[in-house]
Design a protein around this nucleic acid. Structure first.
Lengths: 144, 144
DNA sequence: ATACTTGCAAACGCTTTGCAGTTAT
DNA sequence: ATAACTGCAAAGCGTTTGCAAGTAT
């Protein structure tokens, strides 16, 4: 996906932090650089298992956590399907439409902080979260 | 809290659904009608235990889930502290400032959907989420 | 050579379930 | 009276941990 980080960007970031580039981590980078949907640890496990049948869940979790901590991945907790991960959009500040059916995301540039008003003065703002949920075009037109 | 639902409102809603008003549920309603912070199942358990020492976690969970399903409570998953609950603000549409330290919420009326633009046409919007995170005045001025 | 990473197994915490006894309606 | 609710115990699930063997640097 055009917006995503490349495999090389991710691997470079890991190297810079002193982490080793193992086959599993390379494959993990490949996975997240080519999908813009949220993936559960189980999704990742299933994917990794295709190439590394003996991969274990704890390795998946460890790497997902490390990648999240260094900002390569972002986490999102879906109330009905639990914790999921996707590549962080590093290009520029933006927000997402999220399809509640397929969980695909679409980015848009509008930021509500441009216009927000009526906030209490004495509150130090650190960050914000704005997401719009709906049904994407494909899910509308596909019977499921 | 002025914005919250009253105990009676909650109990009426339960009765209307055919649920029975047990002592525990009354106390649960009391708890959520008088706090505007997010509470974890454990928080609720500790509170309930003061009056009903033999209360069990599964009863807490069952009632929290039921109250959430009927819209009396809303759930929120904090990535660092897990699932929490608070009374749903039934008064009118608004959004929240959330203090990342004490998790107290402050409401404000501005809604980003008033101004949002640049969205893909073919996406059916169902709902949205907008939250601002920061440090509230009390947490700023209190050393912790 | 060394420090990091992996897979295994076990533990952990949070949440749910089945069931028998109890309680609100 | 009866249908719903509770508490108990046990199970379930997702996630984390300790450790010995393996691997990238």
């Amino acid at each position: 996906m055009a917006e995503n980080q490349t495999v090389q960007t991710m691997l470079d970031a890991m190297s810079k932090k002193g982490w080793r580039i193992t086959d599993q981590r390379r494959r993990l980078a490949e996975l997240f650089s080519t999908t813009d949907e949220y993936l559960s640890p189980k999704d990742v496990y299933e994917y990794m298992r295709q190439k590394y049948p003996s991969v274990s869940f704890d390795t998946i979790y460890r790497n997902l956590r490390l990648l999240s901590e260094m900002g390569i991945l972002e986490q999102f907790y879906f109330l009905d399907s639990g914790l999921k991960f996707k590549a962080n959009c590093s290009t520029h500040h933006h927000h997402h439409l999220i399809c509640v059916n397929c969980e695909k995301t679409v980015t848009f540039d509008y930021c509500p902080m441009w216009h927000v008003s009526g906030l209490p003065e004495q509150f130090d703002i650190l960050n914000h979260r704005f997401e719009i949920y709906g049904i994407c075009n494909e899910c509308k037109t596909t019977a499921n």
